[in-house]
């Protein structure tokens, strides 16, 4: 299951892969389409985290809050208001971006580990409100039976929609990473002091990055609700944030497609392992330990490093 668009040799190959992805509903059983949709949504979420974590060097420890915020805003708008669905799809990322801006303004004063822990604190407040506010958010039961628009309520309809939106978001993020803004962002990651010395407004760039990442996480949240038809408070619990972090690590957080690959591996593995055993977290824990010891650059990071050693010019400066 290779993620769409993995460093294509030619445009023709890319076109063929896209065609295959869009034609899959014709041949694939519903369950696999559902699984593939989940992979895409989770991959989008992990890629959005990596935008600030891998490319910005910001310790975004509680990314799931923005995912959950997007999901809940989307779900509540569909359930409690008569507004059209497209407005809910626009509001989800907007709300997540706003939350990201608010939290960012408070946290950005600190750096690295302190930033991450402050973010976990603030995010936990959001979680606890969602978890307890039975009258509005459904509390720990979450929200079920969300009226997703008719065309998207079938598995294949949802899959096509998720695929299209994910591809659009990934293309946007790819553009951002390779834009002048993205280059400055990466220079801040590598050396904030030197970046500031050449006239870069470090905090402003970091804030913009945080808001963008939050918005894309919000899109992922709305897409998850589209696929699943429900939203629950675990979506903004801190353990999910760390799981997304593990996906980025697994795929390779200095690469653009790594998080998507990591998400695919984790989601598929969890589904597959779940058939045989209840001890998925034990297995995830062991995988994580092995990664930290033996594969700290992730799968794609390792592959690229190897390529760079064999052919230094080809691998240099690419993401």
């Amino acid at each position: 299951m290779s993620p769409p668009g993995m460093r294509f040799k030619s445009a023709g190959f890319a076109f063929a892969a896209l065609a295959v992805l869009f034609l899959l509903p014709a041949v694939l059983p519903r369950y696999y389409l559902y699984l593939l949709s989940l992979v895409l949504v989770t991959g989008l979420l992990a890629t959005s985290l990596n935008l600030v974590l891998g490319f910005g060097g910001i310790y975004q420890f509680h990314h799931a809050v923005f995912y959950g915020a997007g999901a809940y805003v989307f779900a509540l708008m569909l359930m409690k208001t008569g507004l059209p669905a497209w407005l809910a799809y626009v509001s989800a990322p907007a709300a997540a971006a706003l939350l990201s801006l608010l939290m960012g303004l408070i946290c950005i004063r600190l750096s690295k580990l302190y930033f991450g822990m402050l973010q976990i604190s603030l995010g936990s407040l959001v979680w606890v409100v969602v978890y307890r506010w039975y009258g509005f958010t459904g509390g720990d039961d979450g929200l079920q039976g969300i009226p997703v628009p008719g065309a998207l309520s079938s598995t294949s309809g949802a899959y096509i929609f998720v695929l299209a939106v994910c591809l659009l978001c990934l293309a946007l993020m790819y553009r951002i990473v390779n834009s002048p803004f993205g280059r400055i962002f990466q220079s801040i990651r590598d050396n904030p002091e030197r970046s500031a010395a050449i006239g870069v407004d470090v905090r402003q760039h970091q804030l913009i990055g945080l808001v963008l990442a939050g918005a894309f996480a919000g899109v992922a949240g709305a897409l998850f609700v589209t696929v699943e038809g429900s939203a629950f408070p675990e979506m903004l619990f801190w353990t999910l944030s760390l799981e997304i972090l593990v996906m980025c690590l697994l795929g390779g957080w200095l690469t653009f497609w790594g998080p998507m690959l990591g998400a695919a591996i984790i989601v598929v593995l969890r589904t597959w392992v779940g058939i045989y055993t209840d001890y998925w977290t034990l297995i995830l824990g062991v995988i994580l330990m092995l990664l930290i010891y033996f594969l700290p650059d992730g799968v794609l990071g390792r592959a690229r490093k190897k390529k760079t050693i064999e052919n230094p010019v080809a691998g240099a400066g690419k993401v």
Binding site: Y59, F61, K112, L113, L242, L245, V246, L249, D278, Y279, T281, L282, L284, G285, V286, L288, M289, I292, Y293, P296
Partner: peptide, 28 residues
């Protein structure tokens, strides 16, 4: 103790791995 030279992020993730493993061991 083999990881002290590494970044904080790796140490944090390592303790997260420990949490996952301990959680399931308690369940077992």
């Amino acid at each position: 103790c083999r990881l002290y030279e590494r970044e904080h992020l790796m140490l944090l993730l390592f303790t997260f791995a420990l949490m996952l493993v301990f959680g399931d061991l308690v369940k077992m």
